[in-house]
Design a protein around this nucleic acid. Structure first.
Lengths: 151, 151
DNA sequence: TACTGCTTGACAATTTATGCCAAACGCAAT
DNA sequence: ATTGCGTTTGGCATAAATTGTCAAGCAGTA
């Protein structure tokens, strides 16, 4: 398991290096440290959690930098942002099982009612450890309007 | 279509009434207005958007109340919150297709790698209007630890 | 109609995130 | 190794989103 993490770090590190080289971006110690901190965790830390993780090693690092670098990683495809756009809480009065289309360009979240997606088999080996009560699928992509305006 | 919305409002309104009666909660005009505003929209408004919607009709209503009532609705099962816990942006260095287990009690978000869930057929009739590039399934429920401590 | 307790409104405080700009650093060419 | 350019960072100010507090007000019941 330890070796597994070590391998992940190595892979991620070289991914960062090649992406930076290709894009002409600087390979700063902040970017290295932030990626390493992110890849070392198996949960999904917030920007502040990453900041806490690295501020002990990299003293003097700015919170702003962590936010900024994480967004850079997302736009480079090195990391994913797990949340809805702008991270605002959104509410829905429709409590029936349904799914969502999330446009990455404009941030719109559209409903998707599709009965054929409503009977997914719960993944094997998860229950009964984790008691699943519901699920929802989020499809990400680009909506019709954004495709028109952005090509 | 107009009648459809009218029906939804009626259903939701009576749902609120029965839930409040059963739980001994007050059926305030604020709760009515907020639920009506929420159910009238087919998108997924933020708390502030709901506040904007009702503040014209219900003058003097407090932003705090809107936040509070929406959370109440979620805990009563009348509405859903479409976002990760606490609405913070979370990051993940694992960009491969995978899914999530979200504990409703403690807010933890766990990874779920399950190849059998990685080849979902894109829903019919959505593409090519909406260009889907990826998807992710979020299973909600209660994790092992919370089940132990909460029964 | 009066009582009782749940709810609300107003404001303060916190948390989360972004904008700005001078200083510092990475990188490539000497 | 040194220099110079352009990217990147740090610190701070600011905005945006959310939560905490508590007295005053309303809903539900007697």
């Amino acid at each position: 398991m330890k070796n597994e993490l070590h391998d992940i770090l190595k892979i991620k590190s070289s991914e960062l290096e090649s992406v930076c080289r290709n894009q002409g971006l600087a390979l700063t110690i902040q970017r290295r440290a932030i990626l390493e901190a992110l890849a070392s965790r198996k949960d999904h830390p917030t920007a502040d959690q990453v900041y806490e993780d690295i501020s002990s090693r990299l003293k003097g690092v700015s919170r702003t930098t962590v936010y900024r670098v994480l967004e850079t990683f997302v736009s480079l495809g090195i990391a994913k942002k797990i949340s809805y756009p702008e991270a605002k809480a959104r509410f829905d009065a429709d409590t029936s099982r349904h799914h969502h289309l999330n446009c990455l360009s404009c941030g719109a979240v559209l409903d998707l009612h599709d009965p054929s997606l409503n009977d997914l088999r719960p993944p094997a080996g998860v229950e009964p450890e984790f008691a699943i009560t519901d699920y929802s699928i989020t499809f990400t992509g680009k909506c019709a309007r954004c495709r028109k305006t952005e090509g």
